[in-house]
Amino acid sequence: MLTVLIADDELPARERLRRLLAEIGCVGVAGEAATGREALELAARCSPDVVLLDVRMPGMDGIETARHLSVLQEPPAVIFTTAFDQYAVNAFETRAVGYLLKPVHKDKLAAALAQANRLTRPQLQYLAAAAGEPRRTHIAARRREEVRLIPTAEILYFQAEQKYTTVRHLQGEDLIEESLRTLAEDLGNGFVRIHRNALVNVRHLERIERAPDGRYSVRLRGSAAALPVSRRLAGELLERFKI
């Protein structure tokens, strides 16, 4: 049986989806979430097949929630629901992402469930870019059965390893699968690339040091390590702070 998670901040909207799913039959409701964060927790715990995800939710919107869902071991398929968000609907159309307009028709819901797909990384990136502001507020890291959300403000730096990227933040360290390039694009101006393998949060930058041999390194508040700055990126870094 197909299991579905309903995520919508409005109670009547959740109730209606639940009822439609019951009428369609052969579908189990894995749970209901009123926020993106709740949806993420529930999805990590119950691994639903499909998440019906409202685009406009308080706190973390549907598009950002979808990004974090894709980090899960077994990412669910996502069908977005929206009452009226023209930019989002345009983006869904362009990238053939499943979506439903509220009030949802029962037969359209059934059809969408039958062909629901996981979102691919290019789709997710496109959606995030189409949404423009607001940028990502969290980075999701998977830890066995749960997803840990790290607020971007608490991140010190990202360091690219062989296959993974290490996120060093105020609460410790986590591994994620995203590349520095996409992270840099998503996070925008608040982060600066100082090395081929390092992306640093400007907010936590403490000082830039120059060694006798002319090489630069940076120190971050809350971290003892000095991160080397590559020769190629040193100029940009100094230029940014008008040194």
Partner: peptide, 8 residues
């Protein structure tokens, strides 16, 4: 549209 959804 949200109100329509609520009414539905």
């Amino acid at each position: 549209f949200n109100s329509m959804n609520t009414i539905a």
